[in-house]
């Protein structure tokens, strides 16, 4: 699946860059929304077919929130470690990492500090989403289902959820949605907070 995903994304970028006229950009949002809604319906069907999912999630209780918490810590400290190697100020690298893949919001928030930091936040989080799409099937197969939510970050509730659902099962898909929602709530709080430290 990783290869098909990589092929689709790369083919799209090349088509967009070379063949497709820029006017299409105005309508492309509708295409993405429609495709996403259709895929989320399929995710729902997968969830519904596994009848014991909700009992399992209930048994997990609040433990399930450990997943977004660990992803948040991993993303921020991971970005700081990367920033240290690149000589990017640790605070800025951490704030970029706290975008958790939600590129539009983190970029808007950080461009208040400097346009360069905004661009870095945008590109880092776009890259995170693309790398997540490609790596999720591999992480699910070789490391574990729950771990496959980690690359997705905040996108675990929308764009990467269909890939997670397809690579794992309905139970992990439910945890993924919860994780995506929790991380999405953290982005607007953590990004400015880290910059203020």
């Amino acid at each position: 699946m990783t290869f098909s995903i990589l092929f689709a994304v790369v083919a799209g970028v090349l088509l967009g860059y070379t063949v497709i006229p820029p006017e299409v950009n105005r309508y492309i949002g509708y295409g993405i929304d429609f495709g996403l809604c259709l895929l989320l319906l399929f995710v729902g069907i997968d969830i519904g077919r596994q009848r014991d999912i909700f009992d399992k999630i209930k048994k997990m209780g609040l433990r399930v929130l450990l997943v977004p918490l660990m992803i948040a810590l991993g993303s921020i400290f991971g970005a700081m470690a990367g920033g240290y190697l690149l000589k990017v100020p640790l605070k800025e690298a951490g704030a970029v990492g706290a975008g958790f893949g939600w590129y539009s919001l983190s970029a808007i928030e950080l461009s208040k500090h400097s346009p360069q930091l905004g661009s870095l936040a945008f590109l880092t989080n776009v890259s995170r989403e693309i790398i997540a799409l490609i790596s999720i099937p591999l992480v699910a197969r070789y490391i574990g289902g729950l771990e496959s939510i980690a690359p997705a970050g905040a996108t675990a509730m929308d764009t990467t959820l269909p890939v997670i659902s397809k690579s794992t099962d309905g139970g992990i898909a439910v945890i993924s949605f919860i994780t995506g929602v929790a991380l999405s709530f953290m982005v607007p709080v953590l990004v400015p907070l880290i910059m203020r430290m």
């Binding site: 970005a79 197969r141 289902g145 729950l146």
Partner: peptide
């Protein structure tokens, strides 16, 4: 930055995955 975020996140989730998934098996491909 994206790759480091992803690797650290996976490692962080791995630390707690057994605890979170107690009583159920990890998602199978």
């Amino acid at each position: 930055l994206a790759v480091f975020s992803i690797i650290f996140s996976i490692a962080a989730v791995k630390l707690v995955s057994k605890h979170v998934l107690k009583e159920e098996k990890a998602g199978q491909t």
